[in-house]
């Protein structure tokens, strides 16, 4: 997913487990949505055990990014349009 490298991201958690990532989002952000594995955030298909928690904080999107050798990173990226798109999909 080369696009992640091109994003202006902040690493919120590194080398985490999928469970730690989910719990961190739920306990640190007032707003979050649950999605299924393979759901696309930006151009990234998210990986993990369902449900996968995506955090929303103003214009920031907080989402997990998993690499085979380094576990799960929780990334924070500012993108007004993507945050709005994710909010629009909320039930």
């Amino acid at each position: 997913m080369g696009c992640v490298e091109e994003m202006n991201y902040e690493i919120v958690l590194r080398d985490a487990t999928f469970k730690e990532s989910r719990e961190y989002v739920r306990s640190n952000f007032k707003e979050s949505i649950d999605v299924q594995p393979g759901f696309k955030v930006f151009d990234v298909h998210v990986i993990g055990l369902p449900p996968i928690a995506i955090g929303l904080d103003g214009d920031f999107v907080i989402f997990p990014y998993t690499k085979p050798c380094h576990g799960t990173f929780l990334l924070r990226v500012e993108d007004k349009e993507e945050a709005a798109r994710l909010r629009a999909g909320k039930k």
């Binding site: 594995p37 393979g38 576990g71």
Partner: peptide, 30 residues
């Protein structure tokens, strides 16, 4: 696979860490 452009009859996921479990769960879902 997520975009439904391709799929397989069997899938073997190699797991020795947490990321491996995450990939297996993902394959099970998509």
């Amino acid at each position: 696979i997520s975009d439904k452009k391709r799929d397989f009859d069997r899938c073997f996921v190699f797991i020795h860490n947490d990321a491996g479990v995450s990939y297996a769960a993902t394959m099970g879902a998509i």
